[in-house]
Write a protein that binds this DNA or RNA. Structure first.
Length: 981
RNA sequence: GCAGGGGUACCCGAGUGGUCAAAGGGGGCGGGCUCAAGAUCCGCUGCAGAAUGCUUCGCAGGUUCGAAUCCUGCUCCCUGCACCA
């Protein structure tokens, strides 16, 4: 399937080889220069030739399965794709660096209506349309340098793939999970096909937004409800974001309750009603049926209410569900002229048909308890039906709530039978259920909102359902050895011919019955495309397998614990993820795999937004053409806000153009640094340019190699310590997919730190080389091309793609080295601040700085206080006594200062706690090491002077020299007294 | 209506009891370098101030010695579901 797109890129790409922002002047041509459009294709080719990203089962290595939701090939890649795959690629590359055997595949969800519609309007065949699109999106993917194992590339519209769709379908059939039945189904007139419940939003088609109507049709279902409990319970311990779990829970909608049988008076019929509140059984004052309920017509026949019922039923049938909910919030009902008997109380109650009862949920009938259900309450008031309280808000007292239903749990009261009053909540429900079951009048029952998955579609461009219809034998599966049932390629699509062209394709339709050998008609329905994506992640594990969907041993290796990281859009929170979870469980039960949950960690990447003209008062977003204009509706000047990139708003940014201008690595850096994966992000041209400059800056660091000649330098130890510490933080962040944080370290902090080291005296060539080598690996996940170029410039023969990095063990002195340096930074910061103030107080320019460091007794006292704090010493209570008998307290002249200092150390002020509690761990370590602060500052004096623009600096321990400006008393450990003169 | 997520400085965004006037980036401002521009490096970017104090994390209360962080109410925004018995 792989067809050498990379070579094509090489010959055809980047006519505008120079980036828009360009930094180097021409005469300095010996310097290394960052040229993304040269190095990116170069490394893409190198990776490909080295087969760096091909991975196979290797039981000796830990595996990491990194997966992105594969795209529907609609043409070129958009920013949403770029973001999705940049996240995945950086993690895949990171995991390889860490020694994991990484499975990172890519394919195309290539069945579906858009290709069919395109074929219809432009002529041609969906297959050609689809393949054209796949070619261009593949080219885009490769130009971004994503590290897929291209051998595994698949397209669901290929017979090599959908063969196994059909094979699995027959498995479903064998195990009784396939059902063909006539049912009222959702029909979209525009798409000319049925839709699954999940594909209907507000009674409109999820794809074309036209209205959905109900039709009675024979359709194919997958019995997903058989797994409803497991699908729900499994959510408790998988790594999905909370809101995705919430959506799935809502969708599955499990409710526990009871089915209660209400016998119809003077009839053999019984009305079964589902309720979650059996504890309110004694408050039932009527029963309501959905107007579609089959009993309605029979019961009402011959009563005075017959005509009235017909009117209501007609009205409901005519209205769409959408209208029933939104236009007619008013509850309406008709008495059906008959009574039912409450099975526990024996009481006779009227039967109504009500427009608010949903036919498809539960039994389509509800027991109405107006005192404890607001809907029933409204209905009862309207039709003047008795409202009877049977629950109390507090134990042993009379009900309080008036004028509306009390829907909470309460204590049963006023039961017409012994043994129930006083029971509460779940006890009450169980007691009623027990009574019902004992008397055969009902049972405990669990209902689901989840329905079976209607997966047949009356369309062409999908997997043919592998069945034939034989007049003698009925509906018969195609034997596995005859698979795949292929879609014909000689089909003509045109605007005039609507419907499914498979039906009129004689060759396709004509079939032989596998059972009797007689003439049969082939099934022309195809499968919902969500079927294709429900197991593609399994196929990827063994994508070249020609004999089975996948091999058991292979799948158990790659799918152990599920896909380790799955990245995609929130729009698939319900359908795709639910179907995929269902498939995995069902296939597990077929013995095909061990794993039960397909995705162990899901990351839903946020939207990519872009600035869009926006009218605050109309709350409307406008096309970017109107930027700076007045609102066409109200005339106010348009503001701006960020909105999802969309064609209709014209605020899209083309990845191709960005890549051409800045290179793929800059686009990746921008995407990954712009915000964390889950958060939304705003496109910003200036930020992209800034990131591009950052790339240049990082890359130009390589020039230091020529500039540094000494083998060792004063900052070698510091730089090494800083690198190790950065590396650890970076690992933690990347392990947890906090990519933004990781990139901040690898692409920003690392540069800042090196610049600091150079300013502070510089590093030697040996350490520099080592530093750049390790840094190269850190640059690799987010900006791999630049990192490889960097790495090869350093003279390393092994590509980063083949490199595994080792644990950077922290050096013993790292903490001290780093905290000493950061103490110096702090000193400079505060000196700079104080200098500014001093200048305002001084008539002449400030030229001298006298630094008085802490006297030893303060240092000793602080260490003592730190030790006490470790023992949970109560400074509030015992601190004063402690200091008063301390040796420093003997000298009366010092008592005031000692006491003041002690309080600052241990108690603090109103807002801040004592210093012993606010010091950083690194600072504590430094203080306890009794490092020589005076010497440390002295050795950096020149640097400090330069940094704050001062001519002369003097440093001594407070008390050992003149107390200039009386600043000695401010001197404390890590906080020397500063006097500017 | 129900459920989930949010509101942090000019903008984006990190931060979930004290080390927070609050990372990082963008933008803006100042300085070094330069004939100059760009790039780059350094700094400033709540108010006042010789090292401290004050005000600030949607609004209003509360808990606490101490709140951006915890609790309650309100408000606004986003997302999903929606007469589910």
């Amino acid at each position: 399937m792989y067809d050498g797109q990379v070579e094509q890129n090489l010959s055809t790409g980047f006519k505008n080889g120079r980036p828009m922002v360009h930094t180097e002047s021409e005469e300095r041509c010996t310097m290394v220069e960052y040229e993304p459009n040269t190095i990116e294709p170069k490394w893409q080719l190198a990776w490909k030739e080295a087969e760096s990203f091909d991975s196979d089962v290797d039981q000796s290595k830990p595996k990491f399965y990194c997966l992105e939701m594969f795209p529907y090939p609609s043409g070129h890649m958009h920013m949403g794709h770029v973001r999705n795959y940049s996240i995945g690629d950086s993690i895949a590359r990171y995991r390889r660096l860490r020694g994991f055997n990484v499975l990172y595949p890519m394919g195309y969800d290539s069945f579906g209506m858009p290709a069919e519609n395109a074929a219809r309007s432009k002529g041609g065949h969906p297959h050609d349309v689809t393949w054209g699109n796949i070619e261009s999106i593949r080219e885009d993917l490769q130009r971004m340098g994503f590290s897929y194992d291209w051998r595994r590339e698949l397209a669901t519209s290929n017979a090599e793939y959908y063969h196994w769709n059909q094979w699995i379908f027959l498995k479903f059939y064998e195990t009784g999970l396939v059902e063909r039945r006539t049912a009222p189904v959702n029909w979209c007139n525009d798409c000319e096909t049925v839709l699954a419940n999940e594909q209907v939003k507000n009674n409109r088609c999820w794809r074309c937004s036209s209205e959905v109507v109900q039709k009675e049709m024979a359709q194919w279902f997958l019995r997903m409800t058989a797994y409803a409990d497991e699908l729900l319970d499994g959510l408790d311990d998988i790594g999905f974001p909370e809101h995705v779990k919430a959506m799935q829970r809502n969708w599955i909608g499990r409710s526990h309750g009871a089915e209660i049988h209400f016998p119809v008076v003077d009839s053999d019929h019984t009305i079964a009603a589902f309720t979650t509140r059996p504890d309110t059984i004694f408050g039932v004052t009527f029963v309501t049926l959905s107007p579609e309920h089959p009993l309605c017509e029979e019961l009402v026949a011959g009563t005075e209410q017959e005509a009235e019922f017909q009117a209501l039923a007609d009205e409901c049938a005519k209205l769409t569900e959408f209208e029933r909910i939104n236009m007619l919030r008013e509850k309406k009902g008709v008495f059906l002229g008959r009574m039912a008997r409450n099975p526990l109380s024996g009481e006779e109650i009227p039967i109504y048909a009500g427009n608010f009862v949903v036919a498809s949920y539960g039994t389509g009938a509800v027991m109405a308890v107006p005192a404890h259900d607001q809907r029933d309450h409204d209905f009862a008031e309207k039709y003047d039906i008795q409202i009877r309280r049977v629950l109390s808000e507090s134990e042993g007292s009379e009900p309080i709530t008036e004028g509306k239903a009390f829907e909470g749990l309460g204590w049963m009261i006023g039961s017409s039978r012994e043994g129930f009053d006083g029971l509460y909540g779940d006890d009450a429900k169980q007691a009623v259920i027990r009574a019902l079951e004992a008397e055969g009048a009902g049972k405990g029952s669990t209902q689901f909102r989840l329905k079976d998955w209607l997966l047949s579609r009356q369309r062409f461009w999908g997997t043919p359902i592998p069945f034939v219809h034989c007049t003698k034998c009925g509906v018969i599966p195609v034997p596995k050895e005859d698979l795949p049932v292929r879609l014909p390629l000689d089909v003509v699509f045109s605007e005039e011919d609507s419907g499914n062209p498979l039906g009129s394709h004689t060759e396709f339709v004509q079939a032989i019955c596998p059972t009797c050998g007689g003439e049969a008609r082939r099934e022309t329905d195809t499968m919902d495309t969500f079927y294709d994506s429900s197991w593609y992640f399994l196929r990827f594990c063994d994508a070249m397998n020609e004999n089975a969907p996948y091999d058991r041993e292979t799948i158990d290796y790659w799918m152990e614990g599920g896909v380790d990281l799955y990245i995609g859009g929130i729009e698939h929170a319900i359908m795709h993820l639910l179907y995929a979870r269902f498939f995995t469980k069902a296939l597990r039960d077929f013995g095909m795999n061990k794993v039960s949950e397909p995705f162990s960690r899901l990351v839903c990447q946020g939207m990519v937004n872009a600035p869009t003209p926006y009218c605050t008062s109309c709350n409307v977003e406008h096309h970017v053409d109107l930027t700076g204009n007045d609102c066409p509706q109200c005339g106010e000047l348009l503001g701006s806000r960020s909105a999802k990139m969309s064609k209709s708003l014209g605020n899209t940014v083309s990845p191709e153009i960005m890549i051409e201008q800045f290179g793929a690595d800059t686009v990746r850096l921008f995407i990954l640094f712009g915000s964390n994966p889950e958060a939304g992000m705003d496109w910003s041209d200036s930020a992209v340019e800034a990131n591009h400059r950052q790339m240049h800056q990082i890359f130009s660091v390589l020039n230091l190699l020529d500039e540094v000649s000494d083998e060792v330098g004063p900052m070698d130890d510091w730089l090494a310590a800083k690198r190790r510490s950065n590396m650890h933080t970076w690992w933690d962040a990347m392990d947890d997919v906090r990519i933004r944080e990781g990139v901040m370290i690898s692409h920003f902090d690392m540069l800042t730190d090196l610049q600091w080291a150079m300013r502070r005296g510089g590093v030697g060539s040996k350490e520099l080389k080592k530093h750049l080598t390790v840094w190269g690996a850190m640059l690799y996940p987010a900006t791999p091309h630049m990192a490889e170029e960097w790495n090869s410039h350093l003279g390393n023969d092994t590509t980063l793609a083949e490199t595994i990095i080792n644990d950077p063990s922290i050096g013993d002195d790292d903490v001290l080295i780093l905290s000493e340096e950061s103490a110096l930074k702090d000193l400079i910061d505060s000196a700079r601040n104080v200098k500014g103030l001093a200048e305002r107080h001084s008539e002449k320019p400030v030229t001298r700085l006298v630094i008085q460091t802490t006297p030893n007794w303060k240092l000793d006292l602080l260490i003592e206080a730190l030790d006490l704090a470790d023992t949970e010493f109560d400074f509030m209570r015992e601190g004063t006594a402690f200091i008063q008998q301390h040796s420093t307290f003997v000298d009366e002249a010092m008592r005031g200062e000692v006491m003041q200092y002690w309080r600052a150390l241990t108690i603090g002020s109103k807002k801040t706690r004592g210093r012993v509690f606010t010091l950083r761990d690194t600072e504590k370590t430094l203080i306890r090491s009794k490092h020589n602060e005076t010497a440390s500052i002295k050795s950096a004096a020149l640097f400090i002077a330069e940094a704050i623009n001062i001519e002369d600096i003097e440093v001594y321990v407070a008390g050992e020299g003149e107390d200039v400006s009386g600043k000695a008393r401010f001197a404390a450990p890590l906080q020397p007294g500063l006097a500017f003169l």
